[in-house]
Design a protein around this nucleic acid. Structure first.
Lengths: 158, 158
DNA sequence: GTTGAAAAGTGCTGCGA
DNA sequence: TCGCAGCACTTTTCAAC
């Protein structure tokens, strides 16, 4: 067993096992987790409260299939800023674009890297032209369309 | 039961409203959703079952904070293949790399685009050298490290 | 398809070890 | 600190509309 780093000193093996089970299926009942790990339901409850208080668990998300709701196009955008200092302001404006689901400040060619989900290529072009390239500080963008999402999962805990 | 066409024909406004509420907070009780939308709890249950059967809801995920568990580095990889035909085989091997949380087949410079979460830069280099660049068919990779994740959310339904 | 209420199962709290 | 047991709440089912 490896030693835990500073921030995880309060987390033991049981916590990790609970997280592992819930990360596979967030709707697993506490009683079933308790049975599997051979502890009481109350213990699971206490541990979950601790994990939430520590900010390790941020909440639960419904995993949906955007394609079945008519959102067929997933794309990645590399965004060039005129000046790096415009990052905060650009992000503030990009937050209003609902189709952007992920946005990172990255090393490398671009300043901003974003993931975007939209209905079709027409919708994508509209968003690029009307909502993204008009943001102050954005110089130009490069677009990569995802033709297939082959992996989509969470990290595995040791 | 076996219709596979026009994605939204079976989905009405009530379904969308239920999804919208649950996408904000997946732990919202059915009774509360029912109260908010002024229908009975049983109806919510029937609709949820329908949405699951249609594959629109794929499940629920626990949203965790990887940084608090010692996973501090998030990076994106552009992967060049020697030949595009090696995609399926490369994906099969990359699936065994647990640190890869997302993988896409994309247009543009690269054949494969991946998102990877690991403990630190040493861990990242190990994965790149030992597990990714040794995969058959992979020519070379380009790495972008995310210094900050400013947006992380789901699509908003109309 | 929807409703309302009963039945079954789960989450929460306090007491005891 | 952990486990057990009782209470409150939620999910699920089903007859009736």
């Amino acid at each position: 067993m490896h030693q835990k780093k500073a921030q995880n000193s309060e987390i033991d093996n049981l916590d990790i096992q609970i997280l592992s089970i819930l990360m596979k299926n967030a709707t697993t009942p506490y009683t079933e987790i308790a049975k599997e790990l051979i502890v009481s339901g109350g213990t699971i409850h206490v541990r979950m409260k601790k994990l939430e208080d520590l900010g390790i668990i941020k909440g639960a998300n419904l995993e949906i299939n955007p394609q079945k709701l008519g959102y067929d196009v997933c794309a990645f955008l590399g965004i060039f800023l005129e000046k790096g200092s415009q990052y905060n302001n650009a992000v503030k404006q990009l937050k209003t674009v609902n189709e952007i689901v992920e946005l990172h400040y990255t090393t490398g060619s671009w300043s901003i890297f974003a993931k975007i989900i939209c209905r079709d290529t027409t919708h994508l072009r509209e968003i690029l032209n009307e909502q993204i390239q008009s943001v102050e500080g954005i110089q130009r963008t490069e677009t990569f369309i995802s033709l297939e999402e082959s992996i989509k999962r969470q990290i595995t805990l040791d």
